[in-house]
């Protein structure tokens, strides 16, 4: 079953939100527009709309997360849904059997939506394929595969800062592409939104096979990779990559691929710097850059709530939703 037939209902509306792969320009724009309308809500004193009143949403996290889980929870609460957080560490599950059992048990409690994070690629697809007809599944990150709400909040942030014309933009994604579900989703989203140029910058150890097939120009040199770009997205580098012989040291990585004020000079003068967080200061980027005027890292977090509200309401309503 392809992700596409699983994600959309027969009218082409969002049923589950599993990956950007297979979603069209129209749908991504609808998500962004809906998020824009919710962004106002989050700025009001009473930050709630009654769209999902009476609905039960379960945050089903098989992998640790703070920011993603929290923003999903906030988004659900601002839509007036009841939220249940379930954290299941990998060690306490015995692979698929228990995963399916967990799902069945929760479904028996009439849950309407599952927000799923799991260390295995394809986990959200598996749960969606096996979920009861009335439930929706939102992927909050599966293995190295996909993190579609993160990608959409990044698109939302880019659109707010740079305007809706993605065709005029050059975007560089820098860092561990191989292990990054965020990068895969961002590349799909940027290409679907017809971004002028998408680049990925990394040493060969942190690139997947045939990386170009993802739909991006491949660079191994940071200065060349960010030359004249309008947006730089830095990825988080997991510290365990040093042990896996992907890299010799954090020091050499920072030297070659870390973002500094000086290196930023190669980019477009009004470049925007993004990071999905949490940042390793002094590894991916200098504090000076992270906290500097070009950084929109904290805005990304804020936008995460509106985007997640948009996706949740769309998947639940399966029709255009605007806040009342």
């Amino acid at each position: 079953m392809s992700g596409n037939t699983l994600q959309l209902d027969k009218n082409g509306r969002l049923r589950h939100f599993l990956s950007i792969d297979g979603l069209n320009h129209h749908l991504l724009t609808e998500i962004l527009d809906t998020a824009e309308s919710f962004a106002g809500v989050t700025e009001q004193t009473v930050k709630k709309v009654p769209l999902l009143r009476g609905k039960t949403i379960v945050n089903l996290f098989f992998e640790a997360s703070t920011r993603t889980r929290t923003t999903f929870e906030l988004a659900a609460k601002r839509l007036s849904a009841d939220v249940l957080n379930i954290n299941i560490t990998q060690s306490s599950t015995v692979k698929g059997e228990t995963l399916l059992d967990t799902l069945r048990n929760l479904e028996a409690m009439h849950v309407d939506m599952f927000i799923v994070r799991h260390a295995d690629s394809g986990a959200a697809h598996f749960i969606a394929a096996n979920a009861a007809a009335h439930t929706s599944v939102i992927n909050a990150g599966d293995g190295w595969h996909s993190h579609p709400t993160q990608a959409m909040l990044d698109m939302f942030t880019i659109r707010r800062v740079k305007g809706a014309d993605f065709g005029s933009l050059r975007v560089a994604i820098v860092g561990d592409i191989l292990h990054s579900r965020v990068a895969r989703s961002q590349i799909h989203a940027l290409n679907t939104l017809n971004t002028g140029e998408v680049r990925i910058v990394a040493p060969k150890t942190l690139l997947p096979a045939d990386a170009k097939s993802l739909g991006a120009q491949v660079y191994h040199n940071l200065q060349a990779g960010i030359k004249d770009v309008d947006v730089i997205i830095m990825l988080r580098l997991q510290r365990e990559r040093m042990q896996g012989a992907f890299l010799p040291s954090e020091h050499e990585y920072f030297e070659l691929f870390g973002l500094t004020e000086k290196k930023l000079g190669h980019a477009s003068p009004d470049v925007t710097v993004m990071h999905p967080g949490p940042i390793n200061r002094g590894v991916e980027m200098d504090s000076e850059v992270a906290d500097g005027p070009r950084s929109v890292i904290l805005e990304q977090v804020t936008h995460g709530i509106a985007v997640r509200m948009a996706v949740m309401s769309m998947a639940m309503a399966r029709k255009e939703v605007t806040p009342g």
């Binding site: 599966d142 997947p208 097939s213």
Partner: peptide, 15 residues
Amino acid sequence: HEGRVATRLGLPGIP
């Protein structure tokens, strides 16, 4: 297999 499909799906590849 470590190839295009592994790259797209984010599955650990065997070269």
